[in-house]
């Protein structure tokens, strides 16, 4: 797989963020820029595909809910939000942040104040899930060899 670009990275982080965290980051911006909705937020479905034998012929597993939105800043920059679930607001905020992050003047601050903390939160949640099950890992000992 190709290396993720910066934009792919932040879009993934925005999609996985909790809505409340995004709202907080939005409210915390020094100034909230004007934008118009090129595509109003909407809820739809994505057909999830799997692969037979995990690596073979693709097949349609079932659908999942998906929200999307496209916004445009006054300077013409377009931002896209595609997020799992049915939160139109989440899709809209993800799109706005995507647009703002494309602005060179805003990029550095947004990355350090918004994207990195959101990513750190997600990583921490994943590690917690992983640690949760770590205790259920089986330590086999072989009776024949009797080394245990």
């Amino acid at each position: 797989m190709q290396e993720q670009t910066n934009r792919q990275f932040w879009m993934g982080v925005l999609a996985r963020a909790q809505l409340e965290s995004l709202e907080a980051h939005w409210a915390g911006l020094p100034e909230q820029p004007e934008y118009r909705k090129v595509r109003a937020p909407e809820v739809g479905l994505a057909m999830v595909q799997g692969r037979a034998g995990s690596g073979g012929q693709a097949f349609n597993l079932g659908e999942m809910t998906l929200s999307r939105c496209v916004v445009q800043l006054d300077d013409g920059t377009a931002g896209f939000g595609y997020v799992r679930g049915r939160s139109k607001r989440h899709a809209e905020l993800a799109a706005v942040f995507d647009a703002l992050l494309q602005n060179d003047d805003r990029y550095a601050a947004l990355m350090s104040d918004c994207i990195q903390p959101l990513h750190a939160q997600w990583t921490a949640d994943r590690n917690a899930l992983s640690r949760d099950v770590a205790g259920t890992k089986v330590d086999f000992f072989t009776l024949v060899r009797g080394e245990a």
Binding site: V38, R39, V70, Q72, G76, A78
Partner: peptide
């Protein structure tokens, strides 16, 4: 490019 998008419904 979103610059030349027409207005939909």
């Amino acid at each position: 490019s979103t610059h030349h998008l027409w207005v939909p419904y």
